[in-house]
């Protein structure tokens, strides 16, 4: 059996260090398997959050060789095992212990966004009618598993610490999902511009690159929202045109 070295960040509340663990591995293992094996054999007190091991719960987010990834979806054969593999917690959220961070800021952000506000029901039995073609767009965003890897990599949060002003890519797609929904009657454009500060996003697409659900966050959610804001606030000719229509 071959062995590999995992360089795992150990510590509490941001203070700590990398510790090297050399462990044997088998074909088909993922990083989370290795972390579990190390936890079982040599580091019983190592904190790691996980749940489904199937890339669907969004719990096991970490940075593997510096890249935000799900530990359970990163197979060892995708990594160069001749060098130590670094595994560290996400950088954009307060650190708790070892690989675990406190992501509760995200839940607080979500509460600020106006909820789904459907129009009155279409039929007497309280149901609605809509076309699949019209919900295709919101459905792409519903694939989100809230792993918050996109929030972690976004430089507005990661490097510029704009947590108070910017909601981050995860919640921009959430807002897009509501705004583009054929039944929704809410209007979140003013909030997007002034409170959620979509203007901080400079469309550099790191969020799209890390999303394990391969949601085209920037192209399909953020830019279309920016365009809707242009309609409303930065397109005098378009406004004039609409007035005469």
């Amino acid at each position: 059996m071959a062995s590999a070295t995992f360089r795992i960040w150990r510590g509490e509340r941001g203070a700590g260090k990398f510790v090297d663990y050399t462990t044997e591995f088998e074909e088909g293992m993922v990083v989370l398997d290795m972390v579990h094996k190390i936890q079982a054999n040599s580091a019983n007190d190592m904190a790691v959050r996980w749940n489904c091991k199937a890339g669907k719960c969004g719990s096991c987010s970490a940075e593997i060789n510096g890249k935000p990834k799900l530990m359970c979806m990163t197979r060892l054969n995708q990594l160069d095992l001749t060098q130590p593999v670094t595994v560290e917690p996400m950088k954009t959220f307060p650190h708790v212990k070892d690989l675990v961070t406190d992501v509760s800021w995200n839940y607080r952000v979500k509460k600020k966004i106006q909820k789904f506000t459907p129009r009155p029901a279409d039929a007497a039995d309280g149901t609605w009618r809509m076309q699949q073609a019209d919900v295709d767009r919101p459905q792409e965003f519903r694939k989100c598993i809230e792993c918050f890897l996109c929030q972690d990599v976004c430089h507005v949060l990661r490097d510029h610490d704009k947590h108070d002003e910017f909601i981050g890519p995860r919640f921009l797609i959430y807002t897009a999902q509501l705004e583009m929904h054929p039944l929704d009657t809410g209007d979140r454009l003013k909030a997007l511009k002034d409170d959620f500060n979509i203007g901080y996003c400079n469309i550099t697409k790191c969020c799209t690159k890390v999303c394990p659900e391969e949601i085209k966050i920037t192209d399909n959610a953020i830019i279309p929202l920016k365009e809707r804001i242009v309609d409303e606030y930065y397109d005098p000719l378009g406004k004039l045109f609409k007035m005469f229509k």
């Binding site: 890249k67 510029h160 500060n197 550099t204 790191c206 397109d235």
Partner: peptide, 29 residues
């Protein structure tokens, strides 16, 4: 801004980052 994903940025921008929210880049609209 950023140089590449998950790579540190020049420190001078820090919290003063304006993005496309204010002048001049708001003109991109």
């Amino acid at each position: 801004d950023p140089l590449s994903c998950a790579v540190g940025e020049p420190g001078f921008r820090g919290k003063n980052y304006r993005g496309e929210r204010k002048f001049p880049l708001i003109m991109q609209n």
